[in-house]
Simulated assay, not measured.
Amino acid sequence: MDDALLDIAEVARRSGLAPSALRFYEKKGLVAAAGRNGLRRTYHPDVLERLALITCARSAGFSIAEISRFIVAQPSDADLRVRMAAKAGDLEEQIGRLTRLRDSLRHAAVCDYEPIVDCPDFKRAVGNVPEPAIAPGGCVR
């Protein structure tokens, strides 16, 4: 075996993925084995970068089909570029929701309001209610 190649167990350990996931991604054409060492698949070390991309994309909600198309995309693929831009917008919305959730949890961790979920600051952090309008002089409208 070429010393530069990694066997499936090492790739699984380094990537945090199960060997079955590696075989599945190979079957779907997302990664390719470099060969075999006996019955075990071997991979070039750069497969770890590809697996990191796949893992990140999966955690962001991309389907296997979307990832497959993205991996082979050419600059001339206008349809894919439109879909990527739409997905970026979806991710922006998700980031906003997660940011509000993070902020509300941070507030809840130190809030004395009873019950915490009725706290106006908590509700604002979650995004359930708008910020109060403050009139000149500091009065809530």
Results as ranks from 00 to 15, higher is better:
residue 120 P to V: 04
residue 116 I to A: 12
residue 1 M to W: 14
residue 127 G to H: 05
residue 131 E to R: 06
residue 111 C to R: 01
residue 57 A to M: 11
residue 116 I to K: 10
residue 59 S to F: 11
residue 33 A to F: 04
residue 96 G to A: 15
residue 109 A to S: 09
residue 33 A to P: 02
residue 137 G to E: 08
residue 135 A to R: 15
residue 42 T to P: 01
residue 6 L to Y: 05
residue 61 G to Q: 10
residue 15 S to A: 13
residue 108 A to P: 00
residue 104 S to G: 10
residue 8 I to H: 03
residue 2 D to E: 14
residue 52 A to K: 10
residue 31 V to Q: 03
residue 51 L to E: 01
residue 115 P to W: 03
residue 125 A to T: 02
residue 49 E to I: 07
residue 4 A to S: 11
residue 47 V to T: 08
residue 33 A to K: 07
residue 82 V to F: 14
residue 8 I to K: 04
residue 36 R to E: 06
residue 39 L to C: 01
residue 38 G to P: 02
residue 65 A to W: 07
residue 73 A to S: 15
residue 4 A to D: 06
residue 118 D to V: 04
residue 4 A to E: 07
residue 63 S to A: 10
residue 13 R to P: 00
residue 14 R to V: 01
residue 55 T to L: 12
residue 105 L to D: 06
residue 97 R to C: 03
residue 76 S to G: 14
residue 44 H to I: 00
residue 123 K to E: 13
residue 47 V to S: 03
residue 43 Y to N: 00
residue 34 A to F: 06
residue 42 T to R: 05
residue 124 R to W: 05
residue 41 R to I: 02
residue 124 R to N: 04
residue 60 A to L: 15
residue 35 G to E: 07
residue 55 T to K: 15
residue 61 G to R: 08
residue 83 R to W: 12
residue 85 A to H: 13
residue 104 S to W: 01
residue 97 R to M: 10
residue 140 V to Q: 13
residue 67 I to H: 02
residue 57 A to N: 02
residue 115 P to G: 03
residue 122 F to S: 00
residue 25 Y to N: 01
residue 26 E to M: 05
residue 36 R to Q: 10
residue 77 D to S: 06
residue 34 A to P: 00
residue 1 M to G: 13
residue 30 L to N: 05
residue 22 L to H: 03
residue 106 R to Q: 10
residue 56 C to F: 13
residue 80 L to F: 14
residue 36 R to N: 04
residue 47 V to K: 05
residue 98 L to C: 05
residue 88 A to E: 10
residue 30 L to A: 08
residue 56 C to M: 12
residue 15 S to R: 11
residue 124 R to M: 07
residue 2 D to R: 14
residue 21 A to R: 03
residue 19 P to R: 09
residue 52 A to T: 06
residue 13 R to E: 13
residue 127 G to W: 02
residue 117 V to Y: 14
residue 105 L to N: 08
residue 91 L to R: 07
residue 45 P to S: 07
residue 58 R to P: 00
residue 124 R to T: 02
residue 109 A to G: 04
residue 122 F to T: 01
residue 22 L to I: 00
residue 70 F to R: 01
residue 65 A to F: 08
residue 49 E to S: 12
residue 124 R to L: 03
residue 91 L to Q: 09
residue 85 A to S: 08
residue 79 D to C: 08
residue 16 G to P: 04
residue 74 Q to P: 02
residue 109 A to M: 06
residue 18 A to T: 02
residue 123 K to D: 09
residue 71 I to M: 14
residue 117 V to I: 12
residue 60 A to C: 14
residue 12 A to Y: 08
residue 107 H to K: 05
residue 7 D to W: 11
residue 21 A to I: 00
residue 102 R to Y: 02
residue 77 D to I: 05
residue 10 E to S: 09
residue 84 M to L: 15
residue 69 R to T: 13
residue 78 A to V: 11
residue 36 R to F: 11
residue 98 L to W: 12
residue 37 N to Q: 15
residue 85 A to T: 08
residue 109 A to F: 03
residue 90 D to E: 15
residue 9 A to V: 05
residue 24 F to L: 08
residue 64 I to L: 15
residue 16 G to L: 12
residue 54 I to A: 04
residue 21 A to L: 05
residue 10 E to W: 07
residue 111 C to A: 06
residue 77 D to E: 13
residue 72 V to G: 10
residue 140 V to E: 14
residue 49 E to T: 11
